[in-house]
Design a protein around this nucleic acid. Sequence first.
DNA 1: CGTTTTTGACCGGCGC
DNA 2: GCGCCGGTCAAAAACG
Length: 217
Amino acid sequence: MLMARSSRSSFAAADVLLPAAMAYRQPCSGGSATSSYFGSRPAAPFPFGTAAQLDVFECLSDEGGAVPAPAAVPGAFATPPPPPLMPAERIVPDAAAGYNSHARSAAAAGEGPPRRTDRIAFRVRSDDDEVLDDGYKWRKYGKKSVKNSPNPRNYYRCSTEGCNVKKRVERDKDDPRYVVTMYEGVHNHVSPGTIYYATQDAASGRFFVAGMHQPGH
DNA sequence: CGTTTTTGACCGGCGC
DNA sequence: GCGCCGGTCAAAAACG
């Protein structure tokens, strides 16, 4: 079967600015593009452009459920999954519930204290592509149809060695124009296509994290 | 030729 | 205990 690979998401009109961690995806040809399962049409070179319509519907952790958006990383490394900088436009209870359920299972699976994981779910407007290209390189390792959705759920793992970040992607059952992406874990490396650096404002002491695409990469 | 995708099987948790 | 369900594995195929 011929699969379209390395196609990129093209999203509808922008509503919300994307978090810095994912806002700048370089259109580097020939590599490191997030693999795509459903997408098959040519897409914009910049999947996000400057922004995309995005719903961050919940940020979950094993410690106490919903947590506020992760603080910006005041350094250049250990870039977290795309942090929700914007308030949720809409809560998607089913998907969040499913994720909570999984969190419980994961915690119960091992003995001892529940492991700390960072879980974030996004809901992104995407008419024709399933995969949210966030600058990391993902390897698909599973696909499963889920009970309450006509759409299959796809499982991805960060293909960088030693990085155990996972994400699952499924189309919103209530509104097929949206794609729900759930991240689990924190990358222990920099995005392959992106350099992040931080500068500190002398006056306020605030850090500004910027993403720049690496020249020639 | 190395990497990624595909897909059915397998496994563990949970509810009944 | 059993069946359902979601998540992962792994071998083969496909792709660049």
